[in-house]
């Protein structure tokens, strides 16, 4: 049984694992931060769409199998077809609220820098917030639902990796 004080540490460790996986461009490690619940999901959308109540997203992987497909897109279907880029994610948890015995709603600011390999020039790529439903078990935490809400209404150039 976890003590209440352990929960934020376990949630933060999950978020850290998540951004490390993305910055490492390791999609299998990205997938491993999600629960294998069939309804596990990842969504990337904009604050503009959220505020307007528009359902369309930039990425809408709303089942675990679609999360698996996302890995296939990046590692197999798109491999070698786009000008690659490095990312650097920075996060700051702003809220964590229990919604049941073992689930928490977690809000986290994010900032992502992007370095396209072809220019080698680092630029701010995106800021926004993660709105996550996290399942916390004995000593681990996983995303049941992760939603990245971009501050910018616009993607610059293209986005091959999830945020």
């Amino acid at each position: 049984m976890m003590t209440d004080t352990d929960v934020p540490a376990v949630i933060d460790a999950l978020q850290t694992r998540y951004i490390a996986a993305l910055d490492d461009r390791n999609m299998e490690a990205w997938l491993a931060t999600f629960s294998k619940d069939p309804d596990a999901s990842y969504t990337c959308t904009t604050a503009e769409s959220e505020e307007a109540g528009l359902p369309l997203a930039l990425i809408l992987d709303d089942t675990y199998t679609r999360l698996q497909d996302r890995v296939t897109y990046v590692t197999q279907i798109w491999a070698g077809t786009f000008a690659d880029y490095r990312t650097r994610h920075f996060i700051q948890r702003t809220a964590a609220r229990p919604v049941s015995d073992n689930q928490y709603d977690v809000e986290t600011n994010f900032m992502v820098a992007c370095t396209p390999v072809e220019t080698g020039r680092t630029e701010l790529f995106m800021t926004g917030m993660y709105f996550d439903r996290v399942v916390v078990d004995s000593n681990d935490a996983l995303f049941l639902a992760k939603k990245a809400v971009m501050d910018s209404s616009m993607v610059e150039r293209f986005m091959a990796y999830p945020l």
Binding site: C44, P55, L56, A57, L58, I59, L60, D61, D62, R66, Y73, I77, W78, T81, F82, A83, E118, V155, R157, F158, M159, A160
Partner: peptide, 27 residues
């Protein structure tokens, strides 16, 4: 919603390449 989100557009399975190629052609 699902098909539109994930198929075409700047992160779409099919169209993500577009923007990458436009940039290369522009260069």
């Amino acid at each position: 919603v699902r098909q539109a989100s994930n198929l075409l557009g700047p992160c779409g399975l099919v169209s993500m390449e577009d923007a990458a190629v436009f940039h290369r052609l522009h260069s």
